[in-house]
Simulated assay, not measured.
Amino acid sequence: MSIKTNVMTGKDFKFPQLFLRLAISVTMLSAVADRFGFWGKNSAWGNWENFENYTRQLTFFLPENLSVFSAYAATFLEILFPLMLIIGLKTKIAAYGTGFLLLVFALSMSISLGIKAPLDYSVWVGIAAAFLLATQKEFYFSIDILTKKS
């Protein structure tokens, strides 16, 4: 008896794959919105200064100027990768980039705050989701699929 299993790359999984791209993207863009004060009282940082202080805490092992640079670099990438994922432009690169960016974040959190912090914020789940997305053969509802050469 043969059991047919669906994999995430199958035709029945177009919408879950799109949902995964959107969920990763919205989560990352929400964090960016927080550091610019868009969430008001429901924020973790609430402003850029608090975010820089948090970044310095996570990157205590770096010189201060590199720590500040990492806050700007992380923010740039946390805007770029989600936008790429939303529109489906170079989706594989954006998914791997997101996975590695989150991995650096999780490791920094683990070193400076302990292993519980990235677990509480589901950073490892985000990493797994990004790397799972990166392994897909096609990216439905994307610019990538429109520009794919037959």
Rank of each mutant, 00 (worst) to 15 (best):
L89S: 11
M28I: 14
L132S: 14
L119P: 01
N6H: 09
F100H: 04
L83Q: 03
G126W: 01
P118A: 02
F105D: 06
A71E: 03
F13Q: 11
K92S: 12
A94H: 01
L101H: 07
V7R: 06
A129I: 04
I111M: 13
D120L: 11
N42L: 12
Q136L: 11
L119N: 00
F69H: 13
G10Q: 08
L119M: 04
L132M: 06
I93S: 09
F139Q: 14
L22S: 04
Y72H: 12
S70M: 15
F105H: 05
S142M: 06
N42G: 09
A94E: 04
Y140K: 11
L102T: 08
S43F: 04
N42F: 00
K116H: 13
E78L: 03
F81N: 02
T75I: 04
L101M: 12
I93R: 11
T9L: 08
N42D: 14
F76T: 11
V26I: 11
A74Y: 12
G114H: 04
L20T: 06
K90W: 10
I3G: 14
S70T: 14
E49P: 10
D144P: 12
S142T: 07
G114T: 03
T5K: 14
N65V: 13
Y72G: 05
L58A: 03
A95R: 01
S43M: 05
S67D: 08
Q136P: 10
L85T: 13
K14R: 05
L107G: 08
S70A: 15
L58F: 00
T59Q: 07
K90N: 07
S110P: 09
T59E: 10
K14E: 07
T59C: 11
L66I: 13
D12T: 15
A95C: 04
K116S: 13
Y72N: 07
I86K: 03
E64N: 13
K90C: 09
L62C: 08
L132C: 09
N65Y: 14
E49S: 11
L89Y: 02
E64S: 14
D144W: 03
V123C: 05
Y140I: 08
S67P: 14
D12S: 14
N6T: 10
F36R: 04
A128Q: 04
S43G: 03
E78Y: 00
K14I: 07
L113Q: 06
V125W: 10
L119V: 02
G99I: 11
F38E: 10
R56M: 10
N53T: 05
L66D: 11
L133R: 00
K14D: 04
L132D: 03
F131N: 06
A23M: 05
D120G: 07
